[in-house]
Design a protein around this nucleic acid. Structure first.
Length: 475
DNA sequence: TACTAGTCGTCAT
DNA sequence: CGACTAGTA
């Protein structure tokens, strides 16, 4: 998905350049897309579970190509899945499994390549190569897209290289698409150049660019359907653009689109359904507002402060449920190991198996980080590599179990849950899967729990889209 | 005219 | 993931 058709829509505001335009500068790379392309060279082996690392060739070749033009890459890896994205992820992984089934049956090349999945293990192997070659990297806590935009906006990188149109929705200042591995030519989209974008008849797409720049452009992407939320059936980029051009706000555009949709279904006169339709409209607006927040405040890693921060400064404080939709925070020590050191699986927050073995024999860890951030970040704390407590509690996956005395209760892993009960973890560090136990705690323990700001509970995230779409289709 | 659903290519020999 | 296209309202 991404934003379907967006790159074509704004093509007039992009330009063909050579990558050497960025000579002497750093660029952020969407590492997953390079791993994905690399995996084509060994799709069959990967599908059959055979040992191979040929998928590393392509990314390494691309890195060499960039360096040959004096462009220094910073590879940005995907982190954990955002709760709002489960719908899209589920669709994609279902398609991959289906392809894998067919591949096993019919042994067709196409099915093998369709089944390609970039796994954390593959990312781990690339990360190791990057350390060997002193290549900079960042592991995003959640969306690599948001992380790349942060690096570009804060001047760590001059541009982002990707194939995903979401970077424009994130308002990335400079994005490079279609970088040719052979020639080094590519298509550059500068966000501010969008003010010159025209349609096929040559008229300006974004009149009063300032208002598009500050929000309407992203609103257009959301309304046309993004990874976090499907669109109203029949609404694509053109319609979203037209509605926002006329109405100039998400709220009014949604109202207008709903009216139009309902008119087209010729049911506007039904008085019984009217109240429910109003309800649907306001729910849709709320879902779109959540998407706005993700595109603006998604959780990213700030290499300078060595902390998880929102992509942009949060104007107002959000309630905890809204906050966690942007990507739950985690223990600072975990965030550092994950994002800067790249030694944790983003989903489980467990050390990669291979790394765990080497930690067991207590090797030096100084070479673990990327060169680029050495200057701004302190040394790795080896002690922090020991598996410790979980840092995030996601109530919808908590399996409530009775506490048993035999279980080792790690320090710190406490989250306020009910009045007198706290969730106390048993040392599993994944924000997505873990066991927790209801344990009554002493007052001191409660105080300690509240004082550890990084420990908290979140409500079950909604699986967006499905129910919403069904209700629309039911009209 | 615009949206949709489907197909194809991404590597690399 | 995007690009491209034939089919549809």
């Amino acid at each position: 998905m991404g934003i379907d058709g967006l790159l074509t829509f704004v093509r007039s505001a992009s330009s063909e350049v050579h990558i050497s335009k960025f000579a002497g500068q750093r660029v952020a790379i969407d590492a997953s897309s390079w791993l994905h392309r690399g995996a084509f060279s060994c799709a069959r082996e990967l599908a059959l579970g055979q040992e191979t690392d040929r998928y590393l060739r392509f990314p390494l070749r691309m890195i060499a190509m960039l360096r040959s033009h004096c462009v220094e890459p910073v590879l940005v890896f995907d982190g954990a899945k955002l709760p709002m994205k489960v719908r899209t992820d589920r669709l994609r992984s279902a398609a991959r499994s289906a392809a894998l089934q067919r591949a096993h049956r019919e042994q067709r090349d196409k099915d093998f390549t369709d089944s390609i999945t970039v796994t954390p293990a593959m990312a781990d192997r690339l990360l190791r190569k990057l350390r060997e070659s002193d290549t900079a990297f960042v592991v995003a806590p959640y969306e690599a897209d948001a992380q790349m935009v942060f690096l570009v906006e804060h001047g760590h990188c001059a541009a982002a290289i990707t194939e995903d149109s979401d970077l424009l929705a994130f308002r990335c200042p400079r994005t490079i698409y279609k970088l040719s591995p052979e020639t080094g030519y590519c298509r550059l989209h500068s966000f501010d150049d969008l003010c010159h974008a025209t349609d096929s008849s040559g008229s300006l797409l974004f009149d009063d660019w300032q208002s598009w720049k500050t929000g309407l452009f992203t609103d257009m992407c959301i309304l046309s359907g993004c990874d976090y939320l499907p669109s109203i059936p029949g609404v694509g980029l053109k319609t979203a653009h037209a509605a926002l051009s006329t109405h100039r706000s998400m709220q009014r555009a949604i109202s207008a689109l709903h009216d139009k949709f309902i008119w087209s279904k010729a049911q506007s006169a039904d008085p019984a359904g009217r109240a429910e339709l109003l309800q649907l409209t306001s729910e849709h607006l709320e879902l779109c507002t959540m998407c706005q927040q993700i595109f603006k405040y998604a959780t990213v890693w700030d290499p300078v402060s060595a902390a998880l921060v929102p992509l942009h400064q949060l104007g107002t404080s959000l309630d905890i449920r809204d906050r966690d939709r942007l990507g739950p925070l985690m223990a600072p020590s975990d965030a550092k190991l994950l994002c800067e050191d790249g030694v944790l699986d983003p989903t489980s927050l467990q050390l990669y198996p291979t790394v765990e073995q080497s930690t067991a024999s207590m090797p030096k860890r100084e070479d673990v980080r990327s060169r680029f951030f050495d200057a701004v970040c302190p040394r790795v704390n080896t002690a922090a590599c020991e598996p410790s407590s979980i840092s995030i509690v996601q109530q919808n996956v908590v399996r409530r179990e009775t506490a048993e005395s035999a279980l080792p209760l790690n320090e710190g892993a406490v989250a306020p849950c009910e009045t007198d009960t706290f969730l106390y973890s048993a040392g599993v560090r994944s924000p997505m899967h873990f066991k927790a136990f209801h344990v009554p705690l002493s007052d001191e323990a409660k105080t300690a729990a509240f004082e550890s700001a990084h420990l908290f509970a979140i409500d079950s995230p909604p699986c967006l889209g499905d129910a919403f779409l069904q209700r629309f289709r039911g009209i």
